[in-house]
């Protein structure tokens, strides 16, 4: 049974249509497998080979991978939630209630989005500290560390803007408390506060603004920086291995890298 399924799948992979999409072919040779990475617009960000040592759980705890995983969950659940949500007052709250009481599995979607958001913030922090303690920020990976810091801020902003959307007491006052901090900036404080909320108070304008940020601007920015982050792993010499590299290695001219 399993064998026949595998055969069907093999046949599918041999078909013209499949070949037109995936050009790497069906071989199991190193060449084929390298092509599978190189000829895919998304996968070509990664190197075709990875040091076997880096597959160990202890090396990375897979924290970067898992953070990206939560991001994917958030995009999927977020898009589904957008189908049921109006960013207006007080409809936003009624929509949240409808998700809970009327929409099939709506509550599950909202739960998953919420808990994944918390998980992502936790994982981003964990990833950052893991990278630091392994010393993986060292040259030539300085810039990728900076991108990581940017992604940390983007994650916090994504979570923070999403916090307001249910328009309940928790959301309203968390955003009020959080945004009031911005008012403390010398000279420009109130202007920044106004810019953030689209007014002096958390109201319908703030909700719309946070919605656009949460569903459009910040996810796009996050995709952009995640792309760079992944690509720079390859460009900076693959995943950092403590033992193989001397402590103060200087950046090497491009092209001398093996992979």
């Amino acid at each position: 049974m399993a064998k026949t399924a595998a055969e069907y799948f093999e046949n599918l992979r041999e078909s013209r249509v499949w070949r037109s999409i995936f050009r790497s072919g069906t071989g199991t040779s190193t060449l084929h497998r390298s092509l599978a990475i190189q000829q895919n617009i998304f996968l070509h960000l990664f190197s075709t080979k990875v040091r076997r040592r880096m597959l160990n759980f202890s090396a990375t705890w897979y924290l970067g991978t898992l953070t990206f995983g939560t991001f994917v969950i958030l995009v999927v659940t977020g898009i589904l939630l957008m189908l049921y949500y109006h960013p207006s007052v007080p409809q936003a709250y009624a929509d949240t209630k409808d998700l809970q009481f009327v929409v099939s599995s709506g509550l599950f979607l909202r739960n998953l989005d919420r808990w994944s958001a918390h998980a992502m913030v936790l994982l981003v922090f964990a990833h950052m500290f893991k990278v630091f303690y392994r010393g993986a920020y060292r040259p030539p990976r300085e810039f990728n560390w900076v991108i990581g810091v940017v992604l940390l801020l983007l994650t916090l902003l994504l979570s923070y803007t999403g916090y307001l959307l249910p328009w309940d007491q928790l959301a309203f006052w968390a955003i009020t408390v959080g945004s009031n901090i911005a008012s403390a900036v010398p000279l420009l404080g109130n202007k920044i506060h106004f810019l953030l909320l689209g007014g002096n108070l958390v109201n319908a304008n703030a909700l719309l603004r946070f919605y656009v940020l949460h569903c459009m601007i910040l996810p796009l920015a996050a995709f952009f920086f995640i792309g760079i982050h992944f690509w720079r792993i390859r460009k900076d010499g693959g995943l950092y291995t403590q033992q193989s590299e001397p402590a103060a290695v200087r950046p090497q001219p491009v092209g001398k890298e093996a992979q």
């Binding site: 497998r33 990475i37 996968l43 990875v50 076997r52 991978t65 990206f68 939560t70 969950i73 992979q259």
Partner: peptide, 22 residues
């Protein structure tokens, strides 16, 4: 160092990790 091909070794491990978290 001993190296492995990203496809399928690393890629599917990453997918499995993401799925376990999911």
């Amino acid at each position: 160092e001993d190296q492995v091909q990203t496809f399928p070794e690393v890629l599917f491990r990453a997918l499995v990790a993401i799925e376990v978290l999911s």
